[in-house]
Design a protein around this nucleic acid. Sequence first.
DNA 1: TGCCAGTAAAG
DNA 2: CTGCCTACTGGCA
Length: 783
Amino acid sequence: MKTTAWLFDLYPLHDRMVLWFLTPEGKRLRLVDDFAYRVYLGGPEARLRGLARAWKKGGWVQRVYATRGRDLWSGEEIPVLALELKSYAHLPRLRDWLGAQKEGLAGYNCDLDLAAYYLYRRKLWPCAWYDLEVRDGGLLSIYPLEDQFALEYTLPPLSIMTLGLTRDPLIPLAAGNGLVVGWEDHHLELEAQDAPSLVRELARLLKGQDPDLVLSDWGDEEIIPPLWDWSQQYKVPLPLDREPGPAPRRFKNGRSYFSYGQIVYQGASAPFFGRWHLDRRNSFFFRESGLMGPVQIARLGQMPLQQAARTSPGTLITSMQLARAVADGILIPWRKGEPERFKSAAELLVIDKGGLTFMPPVGVHFQTAELDFASMYPTIMTIHNISPETVNCGCCGGNDAAEGTTGLIEGEKVKRGKGEKGLVDINLGREVLIPLCPSSPFSPGLKPWPSPHKPVPEAGYRLCRRREGLVPRTLRPILELREGLKARAREVGPGEARQYQERQNALKWMLVTCFGYLGYKNARFGRIEAHEAVTAYGRDKLLTAKEICEAGGYRVLHGLTDCLWVKKEGLNRGELDALCREISRATGVKLALEGIYRWIVFLASRQDPQRPVATRYFGVFEDGSLKVRGLSCRRRDTPPFVRRAQKALLERLATAATPADLAALGPELEEMAAGFRQRLRDGDLKPQELVITRVLSQPVEEYRVDTATALAARQLQAAGIHLVPGEKVRYVQLERKGPKETRVRAAPFLDTLDRYDTGHYMELLDRAIDEVLLPFAGVSSEQ
DNA sequence: TGCCAGTAAAG
DNA sequence: CTGCCTACTGGCA
């Protein structure tokens, strides 16, 4: 049977992949695909021959054969042994065996996520339409009907059920907390009754509605795990999945990890099988971009949507690099090899810097514009060919490196064809041919900037001129798609623009992280020299931009990594656009006018009012929109009341265009500020308005100082609620001094709150008010 | 008063 | 997918 359908969900089950499709008529299709996990072994050929004989006799593998693959670091083709495992369960044992081998044997492609590896190998991606050929519930062939990086695509109609809690998520389900279920225009609060009847009630609704998507708040940690436990315990079936047999359900634990020097907590996950469960409180991409975020990244990252939604941008960009590597026939090293080359202390001093900063003059400025480089770091990686394997590569140091070899990883060598779309029939025993490195040497479209022969500024590293690196190959299509989405968002009306905005925003985070990952010692495709090369080029380009601005008669007020603020009497859009074009030409990175400010304020350091700080500023563009960075209202530890007060003042300020306007607003703003102070003193604010949110930076026991955060976390601990690093603590400050037990009150114990530390909140409020009003104290109407 | 642990922001 | 740099606050001696 042939049909058209949308790839919805997939997961491994008993050594096969199960795929769920939705048809345009709204039917659900469950199909099975035999897929053997294939790993590669590299080493001396004699050793590989010996191993091949041994493996054939053993019971783990269904196929063993000699083949070739491309080494990531050298770009050379090397002989390898391919092993196709009989069972997915043998994978950990194979890794154990590999780990125990002595030097000289390298394992490749042996630690990839099963579903993702399946998608890489089959060249498929979720949330796209395919033509399928089906027989007896098995997938015979599959062909995509759209491009992976398409600007436009459609989703089939999805039936949605929502799930939430009636009270604070720290209160356990059915022990003070109730379940809220919604579908279409229904909204039902299931009373917090006994556990079995709660399960029974939800089971009835799930069965009746059979939603494609269950969209929850706190479902991953607070709702699904207890419901599932009760379902097992009381033998009440709960049809979370569409998988007919028992699903391989396991709740992945939450974990705390560091990212960009900050601790983050990724909650446990409770995915469904054949149905989507998305916990919007536990999905970075959903929080950032709504449903289109996870959909877009599941396609690009070639990852099941439920996994993609819960993953970090770093894991996602790694997945794209892995997909690229598999598609290009590159062998994926098991653990990262390359150690960082030794550097002298003097070298470190020169190289180990981040973005460049110019310090702004404190105070209010008029006639000022902001210019931003678009996706500066990813563009640098792309145009300068920066990738872990291209920095000080082995092939360009000498003279006669292998140039332009193409071939196939399995099967005989052939010339690379044009427009290699790379879609293959499902193999069903047939060998899948994988082209090697399609852009080796540099593809015709790639123009190294300005010359690949020049060493990296400051660091002096060389970059490969023969092979385009894995990172640039991965980034180029993302950059193109993001530019396309941004352009589309500008063309269409505001209503339609939203989905394009959501999608381009999801891509932004992948691009940002891709750069960050180059610097991680343990990232699979990280290499510190590559990271340094990127920031070195970044500083070089910002400096170039500054010089061009100054040559054009502009005064550069401020600069921050990839943005510039410039000032000139009578500055206008036409001249600025021309300036941007000139800088874009000179640097190879697109510089665009972010906007002309009616006025902008650069704030002073609070410790030394003479000294500016780089990252705190606010201003109003010509169209009246605000840009605010680093102020109280941008901080997550600012209580909502203070945040709202500051925002109200800012919004009033945004109506002023000229120095005279600003001066005239003074009395009204003071009056507003007085009003906020009075409300605080009156003491009738709701506790929710005063909640301070902080992230736990370490295990509760390890706090040496009794900060409010530590006290609040201990209060929760005493009530049996255990928090781990990266989780949020919410509390209200009751009194600053006095016994530690009563200084703060943690949420969710705020219902009975009858007082708060007015002095503390007044300080926060004053600080927020001063931040936005004090800079205008000296502004007179003549300025 | 000064030190430093703890926390957050912008890019 | 496992630790930027700088600014700032507040506990504590």
